[in-house]
Simulated scan of single mutants.
Amino acid sequence: MERRTFGGDADGAEDLVFVLGWGNKLFHENVRWLVDELVDAGYRVHAFRIPTTIRDFRSEYVEPVAEFVRDLDGYRLLSHSTGGLIAAHLDGATRRVYLSPFWGFPEGPEEPLYDLLAKLPVSAELLPAGTADREALGDLATDRQLETGADAAAPTWIRECLDAQANLPPIDDDAVVFCSLRDRVVSTRAIGERVPADRVVLYDGGHELFSSSSRERHLPTLLAALEEGAAAVRER
């Protein structure tokens, strides 16, 4: 797992841990847009790029981040997609904001395949995920982002994510979720089952808020949610 720290030169900068989604890269222009906005807001941003193939969710996804945050004197937690599944298994954050969290596989004709594929002890990426698609991710997704992201999942990754979703801890009462009802990468139903509507911010776009042209409109709310928690969206 790759980690890079951005900003934090100013005295008193607060630590913000940002766990990226499956296939996100730190050199993707839209990821960097959000990181730069967070730095401009005064945060020291610790961004984690996650591997796209794993055999053990806890040791390969949760523990590298958990080990890092144990040494922080308080931190705020931002996550996207699979990063949101990882973040739900972390402790100690003073604020939690989830962007399109992967708390369930998308509903559709492929749904019965997930349990079947999860039984295969294979770490090769076999199942097309439909994420190399500008419409699915967001209208600002770049060609480089589409070419260098991930678009096929391994059976072992599916198995581990299904297990992590089945054992998802309760979502913090102060957590805020941003998602699009047009998302076809993760299950919006799974989000609605875990977080009440007054803590969900809907945006117009694809799976990635930071790759959707509505991002500028929602950035102040995102920053407020990181600062104030659920009160920031309940008062809108």
Score class of each variant (00 low, 15 high):
157 W>E: 10
197 A>D: 15
215 R>N: 07
41 A>H: 03
150 A>D: 10
158 I>S: 11
105 F>Q: 01
129 A>M: 15
109 P>R: 10
30 N>L: 05
186 V>I: 15
222 L>Q: 03
149 G>F: 08
194 R>P: 04
223 L>M: 04
153 A>T: 13
53 T>H: 09
184 R>P: 07
98 Y>S: 00
219 L>Q: 05
102 F>S: 04
5 T>L: 06
65 V>Q: 07
96 R>V: 10
198 D>C: 08
84 G>H: 05
154 A>L: 00
229 G>E: 02
20 L>A: 05
191 I>D: 02
218 H>C: 00
71 D>N: 15
153 A>D: 09
93 A>G: 00
69 V>T: 15
186 V>L: 11
85 L>I: 09
126 L>R: 03
41 A>F: 06
44 R>L: 05
164 A>L: 06
81 S>A: 08
229 G>T: 01
132 A>N: 14
112 P>G: 00
191 I>T: 02
225 A>R: 03
3 R>E: 11
197 A>T: 13
8 G>E: 09
5 T>P: 05
234 R>W: 01
21 G>P: 00
204 D>S: 15
165 Q>W: 06
77 L>E: 05
39 V>M: 04
73 D>Q: 14
210 F>M: 14
152 A>N: 07
170 P>A: 04
60 E>M: 10
188 T>F: 07
189 R>G: 11
46 H>K: 08
88 A>L: 05
130 G>K: 07
11 D>G: 13
210 F>N: 13
